[in-house]
């Protein structure tokens, strides 16, 4: 599956490909046990984002300007340098799926053992999000609201300008 994404990286001239990419990453999340995240990614990343982008394409233009050279040297050098640095940084990281990694040993066992008893909800992600981090989720709603207001203001402005 990861190979599929690697193949795809040179092709995404099209918005549809980014939708497919989102769906594949949702599949990746399922294989890595993150079912709730996979739902959200498939609905939001594969669905809403694709619809929004198609809407933008309809409002603007569907063609990208032809570029002479496909590969630009300076950005490529920057990207390769950053990537090399990041790969160097991974040598200190715990390996994939290692149960002894520090991330699994701080508060997580407590959440898994005490959480269902205290909240009565079997799904850990749900009760952490709703019962332990309620304020966090409310802040998230504020973010969405702000973005929605921003989008409406921008589009209303654009419409008014065209009427003049």
């Amino acid at each position: 599956m990861a190979l599929g994404i690697l193949h795809m990286r040179n092709l995404f001239a099209v918005v549809m490909l980014s939708g497919i990419y989102s769906l594949i990453s949702a599949g990746l999340f399922v294989t890595m046990d993150a079912v709730d995240v996979a739902f959200t990614e498939a609905a939001v990343g594969g669905g809403i984002a694709t619809v929004l982008m198609l809407g933008t394409l309809a409002l603007t233009t569907t063609r990208e300007k032809f570029v002479k050279s496909d590969l630009q040297i300076v950005p490529l050098v920057i990207v390769i340098a950053t990537g090399a640095l990041l790969i160097y940084a991974t040598f200190d990281m715990p390996s994939f799926g290692d149960p002894a990694a520090p991330i699994h040993h701080h508060v997580v066992p407590r959440y898994i053992e005490e959480g269902p008893v205290r909240t009565g909800i079997p799904n850990v992600v749900t009760f952490v999000l709703a019962s332990y981090r309620g304020y966090d989720t409310m802040g998230e709603l504020t973010v969405i609201f702000t973005a929605g207001v921003g989008v409406m203001l921008l589009l209303a402005l654009a419409g008014r300008r065209r009427d003049d």
């Binding site: 959440y111 952490v128 969405i144």
Partner: peptide, 19 residues
């Protein structure tokens, strides 16, 4: 079980990302 805390974080991040 797999670690649920990154899942919680990323759920929030996806929604903020679409915003």
């Amino acid at each position: 079980y797999s670690n649920p805390l990154p899942h919680v974080l990323i759920l929030t991040a996806i929604v903020v990302g679409i915003a």
